[in-house]
Design a protein around this nucleic acid. Structure first.
Lengths: 359, 359
DNA sequence: ATGGATTACTAAAACGATTTAATTGCGCCG
DNA sequence: CGGCGCAATTAAATCGTTTTAGTAATCCAT
């Protein structure tokens, strides 16, 4: 241990000497010796190899009994070395503790553990040097594939790569993407059904990869439904913080411009929170006078006041699918899909309501 | 791939055949052959072994040049097998996507990667069978230690274990705990300085490990400060959901009971959110009439309306310390601390204000 | 009786390093 | 001149499996 900020801790003085006994694990050789067989035989039996077909059941039973008796577990590292398989995959995320990445990881883990894989996580915090370095580090640890969550990977890595909501640029990677058309349709139809016709939209920051596709989808869908969204009612987030402040500001501008709207479709839940505050301050309470729809369904969306109606990205599912596709690609190199699209879901809570009989 | 819910995805028809070339990595043997030396020599040089002291600089340079030229990287698995070291540790959490665990993991990761370790994560979702099974699974993967986040481990595992906010019960584990006395002092002193003397408290659920220590710390601290907290002003969360609803209910009960208070110290941020809603509905706006202090400082605490004043648990730091202590214990078995305590921090936002001149 | 199958195994070579115990020259001391 | 010590390497064992290519024994049919 070194370099610990002392003020932050007090060590209890209860120091103890403990030996971690736990009988050392038995090796194949020891087991073989005990049984009077060769390691080869036991390995074949344990792995139910076709070569073991000719081994009589009596012997197999004997082996299995010994395995149980001595609680024999093949050494994973040795097996990995021999088979050139690690059963580990690497996951790259901007930061583990961000809700978005954490949800995707949850899905990834769920599928991987079921299939006997584990995963390494590396958070690059958007630092270009780490985005460059970590894939190499993971490769050195012989991961069999990489899932890049919201992370642009440039070089082909020599192993299968699946991107979740990445720029999708890389050759050789499969991308898991949200169906933005469906998302636009769910949100607009919901508002339409509540009687809204004047709908404002907050676009994402120019640098965000979703901004353009999302906006195109919204325009397209609005046209299909016969709704017009004039430029006067379109705002755009500016700045790269992830605070509701950005949504607050753009909404203020929208209000000041004087365009009339009874509903607002925000780029994400955080900006929706800011928008709601701005609207309330302007004397236009949500949802009584204006309905607001968010995006993502982050955890605190449900805890807002009013609780947010939003478009949920199935992040867990996206993680699961990413893992599933990656394992598929690992098992059989060859053809693979370039894109997989997942469907969003409308979550109706308290921030949307029917437009009032007479505005 | 199998068993995919079809409705949720559309595969693009852009299927392509790609070969992942990337020249296969060089082995030590190949490098040796190329240099006209034995693998042993190269290994010694690369690892700067003392045995290599007698090797002339010229040879060393030649080796290093070749290493660079062929971009030689020792195979990690082979090295692991030989050295009986995996440089992997296991992390057990209730669920990766929960903010609490995610923050701790962030700290863990930060320290581990710096030290050349990776980690496996397993989420047990409080299922007793998984809590039982996962440590064994991790051991089979030869992790060198385990960090259990908010997870009760019973059996000694044969490798070092560090618990973050666990029940702290296990023999042989080091526990990282919050300094609850300090937390109580920060919150109460803050309220006291604002002029509050009638302070209500919401205790945690009976099953939560922090409930009792926290409450004891609060009582002790209040006594020290000469503040009395009568039973009439003490509520307790009931139910095991993690929604603000629980805080709402207990606060309603508190109000109905009729005890007078100008401030409220909640068990966590989520319950503080519910409490604020209940107070507002009862015509006692926060912070104008009642000040509210939360606990944890989860992300959405800052996004509330009003933004929450709260006691921050240094979760990242707790993760870092856990990792640091674990690595220390791995490197030198023997004496170890049973507890390490970390300090909380007061985060002042908008939910607390000075008590009004005349209530 | 002979040759080919079949049965029940095993020897030995990987996998790719690390590490201990030699080995080979060579200079030098007494 | 015999032997010692040092410098510069390396052979070989090891880590714990998996897997290929045998081998020996038995059986069956011709």
């Amino acid at each position: 241990m070194r370099n610990l900020p002392a003020m932050a801790r007090k060590k209890s003085n209860a120091q103890r000497k403990v030996d971690f006994a736990g009988a050392p694990p038995v090796s194949l050789k020891q087991l073989a010796e005990h049984l009077g067989l060769s390691p080869a035989t036991i390995s074949l039996v344990i792995n139910a190899s076709p070569v073991a077909d000719s081994i009589p059941q009596r012997t197999k039973d004997r082996v299995m009994a010994a395995v149980k008796e001595f609680n024999y577990r093949p050494n994973f590292t040795a097996r990995s070395l021999r088979q050139q398989r690690s059963f580990i995959i690497g996951v790259l995320v901007p930061e583990v503790s961000e809700g978005y990445a954490a949800m995707v990881m949850s899905g990834i883990e769920n599928h991987l553990l079921q299939e006997g894989y584990f995963y390494f996580v590396a958070s690059h915090r958007h630092r270009p040097d780490l985005i460059e370095e970590y894939p190499a580090l993971l490769l050195r640890r012989s991961v069999e594939g990489i899932i890049a969550v919201d992370t642009p990977l440039f070089r082909s890595q020599g192993i299968p790569v699946v991107a979740v909501s990445g720029r999708g640029g890389e050759d050789g990677a499969t991308s898991i993407l949200l169906d933005h058309d469906k998302a636009a349709q769910l949100a607009l139809q919901h508002l339409y059904d509540l009687g809204h016709r004047k709908i404002a939209v907050i676009k994402g920051q120019a640098f965000s990869s979703d901004t353009e596709v999302r906006w195109n989808a919204i325009s397209r869908q609005a046209a299909l439904m016969g709704i017009e969204i004039p430029p006067l009612l379109v705002g755009q987030l500016e700045g790269d913080s992830s605070s509701p402040e950005l949504g607050y500001e753009v909404t203020r501008r929208l209000i000041d411009r004087g365009g009339q709207f009874t509903a607002l479709f925000a780029f994400n839940d955080i900006s929706a929170m800011g928008a709601i505050r701005a609207l309330r301050e302007a004397g236009r309470p949500v949802p009584q006078q204006v309905s607001v729809v968010g995006f993502d369904d982050i955890q605190s969306a449900a805890f807002q006041n009013p609780a947010l109606t939003t478009i949920r990205q199935p992040l867990r599912k996206m993680g699961e699918i990413a893992a599933e596709i990656l394992l598929g690609r690992i098992q059989s190199a060859g053809l693979f899909s370039k894109h997989v699209t997942v469907a969003p879901e409308l979550i109706v809570r308290e921030s949307t309501a029917a437009v009032r009989a007479k505005a």
